[in-house]
Design a protein around this nucleic acid. Structure first.
Lengths: 397, 397
DNA sequence: GCAGCATGGGAAAACGTTCTCCGGAAACTT
DNA sequence: AAGTTTCCGGAGAACGTTTTCCCATGCTGC
């Protein structure tokens, strides 16, 4: 059984046939040689011809042409068999599949992309992968996209709109089918985002970027903040104070606005008690210093990082959390459960966020523009932990 | 000045010319029209011809052919001008560049990849992006690779070797130029990794995967553990205990071995005091419960997650950290600085890790196999914080 | 005056697919 | 039995680059 000089299927790596795979009728072909032209070595893969012709190690890629030659039919037929684009005679199909498997054929996605004008890749552009809220989002997105056969090109912008624009441009040059984007800045990202949205389907994630620029999916920040306020009211807090982030980022604005809208129910003076910095642990610490002297009984932080910083400093200041003061966060990053006391926070529905983004992507018809923009808001969930309620109560419920 | 019906340069997106860019002699061409064939609308981009011919919104991609037509020279010449592969007359070059810019030409990277047999992409495959050590590594890798003009395809394996193999296969199908891989498992990842390494340059990161399989770069775990033990010895600890991870992952094995090798210097019985679970916070908590009754004076954890869990539980058990017992971690994830007390740990040189990986990738000559495998070990750094030494001492130094 | 040689430019062949024609044969209609 | 449809398969044109030839031209050195 002398096989021609080509590489067999790579061990451990499942061979990929066509984009839809076959119905699993496999049936191992017992009669390989019936159609194989001239048994011994008359066939060699295309690319060869260099000096090290017979080398078993370094072997040119197996192409459709090779499979066609080996199975004695045309390139077109092989393509049809493997992609299932058109019905092919049962006998021929078997021969072709056998040849493909024997040679270890793996389609060249680049050629496929060029011809079919779709690369099967999605660009994922985000401000800072080190922001602890993003990894879980990236994970869900990656899974959702790979599940539909698309690959993810990743870009980290280092929180710089200029880098962001450059990465977007790079991805467009690479002909991504779509872009998933968490904009760095509501305002300064806008131009690049709008330009990109005109060329490929683009979904904004987590943060907005002006209105009408692109589809977007995010958590309902107002609803989340309302959950927090409701919880604090129910547990008897009456002097809340908001520690948020300045700037125009949509999360910052929406959460602040929702606080101001809802806090009056606890205390008419509450909406005015607001301290603004950025979304960082350091600001959380600083805010605690600034705010603690006025003895609020609840610190509503715009995200978990701020809350973690505040929590840390409050403890150092000798405050009793949650006895004297409750602290709440937003996002439910992994850190939240580890803080001491564990942080009451608003959990973003990360999985649904990702699923919805993927759904929006595939709905939009590949060329830019047409159709109105969709904005999806997903309901968050309140996670009550020890920072707002004594531990025994948490456990008791 | 009636321009032909094509899209101008996309606002906000810098136009990309050739892979090396030009020497910046730019000099804005004042005489555009001198070579442009027949001024008014005689020219239209290739793809058009459909019903909505004159639509300004939806426009076919501008190709080399379009630029060639517009600038009155051949495709070959345009290509040469824009990529700089061969010298071209100054006059012609100017005309071509002007036309390219005017039409908003952007090279099709897919076609380029097909022809030149190199995609400029690198696959990054990792076990779990949600592992808090990885985001900063991913960030550095992304920056290092984008800096040399390569794009990053990301895959998250959900800690499953089967998914890992599938992702690797997908990436190979997409013809990545190279693979960067943090293997899920020392043993079960091996087959797929070895097969992939035979086809493209592959660098193992952070964790090993059997010997001689591929290039690899990681922190020097032994050196890191030695730093910790040295520090603990210097601060008078004499009854250390190691909380590590079972299994064959190289980080787990190496750190454990290093502890066992070095702990005897503190206490002849120390090397035996070892508790093994996994790399999780939950295990850290459980380990604290199990180990505290025997009153060690130092808990050396195999990573920061374990340490964070142990720290939390020790505090709940009423232990005085660092008074009665010191706790140390490994990796210096962001969480480490936020724990209370802040965690003494070993910082991995993430930036250098990434740089070294990128360097190894570009050194290996693109086809698999040849040349011996390189293994790079980078020196870690001890970060002393409050969990091993009283805060005033830390601040004092 | 002519071989030799840079120099600048074009035609056309790849790269590996997909997909549109087209033709022949077999299977149905009337 | 002739027309019509269906089925199967092949040739070959794209897709948008890069690159290899090849041909002009003008210049140098003899």
């Amino acid at each position: 059984m002398d096989l021609p000089v080509v590489n067999g299927s790579i061990s451990g790596l499942p061979v990929y046939f066509g984009r839809k795979g076959w119905p699993v009728d496999q049936e191992i072909p017992l009669s390989w040689d019936n159609d194989c032209p001239r048994g011994k070595g008359a066939y060699a893969p295309t690319g060869s011809g260099g000096p090290d012709e017979g080398s078993l190690e370094t072997v040119a890629e197996v192409t459709l042409k090779d499979v066609a030659l080996a199975s004695g039919c045309s390139i077109a037929t092989v393509s049809r068999v493997l992609t299932g684009t058109r019905p092919v005679g049962a006998e021929t199909a078997r021969t072709v599949r056998a040849a493909a498997e024997r040679l270890g054929y793996r389609p060249n996605e680049v050629a496929r992309a060029l011809r079919s004008r779709t690369t099967g890749t999605v660009g994922l552009v985000l401000p800072q992968i080190t922001n602890p809220f993003f990894p879980s989002l990236v994970r869900e997105l990656e899974h959702a996209l790979h599940a539909e056969g698309r690959a993810v090109l990743l870009a980290d912008c280092d929180d710089d709109p200029a880098i962001e624009a450059a990465r977007i441009a790079t991805f467009l040059g690479r002909r991504v089918d779509a872009l998933l984007l968490i904009p760095v800045d509501e305002r300064r990202s806008r131009e690049a985002v709008a330009a990109a949205a005109a060329r490929v389907p683009l979904v904004l994630l987590d943060r907005g970027c002006g209105t009408g620029v692109a589809d977007s999916v995010a958590v309902d920040n107002a609803a989340g903040m309302a959950l927090v306020l409701e919880h604090l009211a129910a547990t008897g807090r009456r002097r809340p104070c908001f520690v948020g982030a300045a700037g125009t980022a949509s999360a910052a604005v929406e959460r602040r606005a929702a606080y101001e809208a809802g806090a009056a129910a606890l205390d008419p003076a509450a909406p005015g008690r607001v301290a603004l910095g950025d979304f960082s642990v350091a600001w959380g610490r600083a805010a605690a210093d600034r705010v603690w002297p006025s003895r609020p009984d609840a610190l509503i932080c715009a995200n978990d990082l701020i809350a973690a910083g505040a929590l840390q400093r409050l403890r150092q200041l000798g405050a009793d959390v949650p006895g004297e003061i409750a602290v709440t966060g937003f996002d439910d990053i992994p850190l939240a459960g580890l803080a001491d006391p564990a942080l009451t926070t608003v959990r973003q529905p990360v999985g649904e966020l990702a699923a919805e983004a993927a759904r929006l992507l595939s709905r939009r018809p590949s060329d830019g523009e047409p159709g109105p923009r969709h904005t999806v808001r997903l309901a968050p969930q309140l996670v009550v932990r020890g920072s707002s309620v004594p531990d025994d109560v948490v456990a008791g419920v």
